[in-house]
């Protein structure tokens, strides 16, 4: 086992060296921007195609279930999705289980609306072209409620406007009325949405998650409970690539490549060191 004092000092030194190397690997690529070629992953393509095939005026229920701490991974996804919706005239209806992200979601809507104005000359108005419904407590109960009665769960939206009679919500009042449900989640909400929402209503479901929970989505994806998903910053980059609007996702890919290579080299180096020690019979350690 570990712990003699010398080992701990070496351990601390190694740790800090790794920190510095990682910091450099992330900072340096910021100043370079070579063209990065990559093919979007199939999971992401199916989400993109689903939205791209929608008609103007179709509604998509989006749950932005994250907060500022996961901003780096999920905010680019939100932006890409919102831009895509605004471009196609699809109406995103945004709900959340995480109140702490609300300020971010408002910002995302405003930014995407400005982009729509500058890129396609579309004027995006809250309540008509999108609905930011905001937060309600209750976790699974919120989903159970939305599954049947969205306007009952949200009598008013985030801007205190009544949802009944709202243009953006015309013709939708339960989950099955939506063409698609997308959950951008930093936690376990995807599974809640599947179990208590889309599996019951039959609405197609997609998700975007932080990279840590993306591997857990494969069973749902392969069983058809989900049409596709975006995992981590790479998922966002793929979507941006499909949408042809490069932003933070694609911009981060070089740093991502660099840091991954560094970590792989560190790990392989350490292994080579270990095997070399074994082979040449170092007595210490």
């Amino acid at each position: 086992m570990r712990t003699p004092e010398i080992n701990r000092k070496r351990f601390e030194l190694a740790r800090r060296c790794v920190y510095v190397v990682i910091a450099l690997a992330v900072i340096i690529p910021y100043f370079f921007n070579p063209k990065q070629e990559f093919k979007p992953m199939a999971e992401v393509v199916s989400v993109y195609e689903k939205i791209d095939a929608m008609k103007p005026g179709d509604q998509v229920l989006m749950a932005f279930d994250y907060d500022p701490s996961s901003e780096a991974e999920l905010y680019p996804m939100s932006m890409a999705l919102l831009r895509h919706c605004f471009k196609k005239g699809v109406i995103p209806v945004i709900v959340t289980h995480w109140f702490a992200g609300l300020g971010l979601f408002e910002k995302a809507c405003n930014e995407a609306a400005e982009d729509a104005n500058s890129m396609w000359g579309k004027k995006i108005v809250s309540g008509r072209d999108y609905a930011l419904l905001g937060f309600r407590p209750g976790w699974t109960d919120l989903i159970v409620k939305i599954e049947r009665d969205l306007k009952g769960a949200y009598e008013t939206d985030y801007f205190k406007q009544p949802t009944r009679g709202m243009k953006a919500l015309e013709g939708v009042n339960s989950l099955e009325d939506f063409e698609l449900m997308i959950d951008l989640a930093a936690g376990a909400t995807v599974e809640f949405w599947i179990a208590y929402g889309t599996d019951k209503s039959g609405t197609p479901m997609a998700a975007g998650t932080t990279a840590v929970s993306a591997p857990d989505l494969y069973p749902f994806y392969k069983s058809g409970q989900m049409i596709g998903f975006m995992g981590g910053l790479r998922g966002a980059a793929d979507y941006e690539k499909l949408l042809k609007i490069p932003d933070r996702g694609e911009r981060g890919m070089l740093a991502q490549s660099a840091a991954h290579i560094i970590i792989i080299l560190l790990v392989l180096g350490a292994n080579v060191h270990m095997f070399a020690k074994r082979l040449f019979g170092n007595k210490r350690d």
Partner: peptide, 13 residues
């Protein structure tokens, strides 16, 4: 009036 309108829309629904 807007709150009222929302309430009446709900009744309509």
């Amino acid at each position: 009036y807007q709150v009222l309108a929302a309430y009446l829309t709900k009744l309509d629904g």
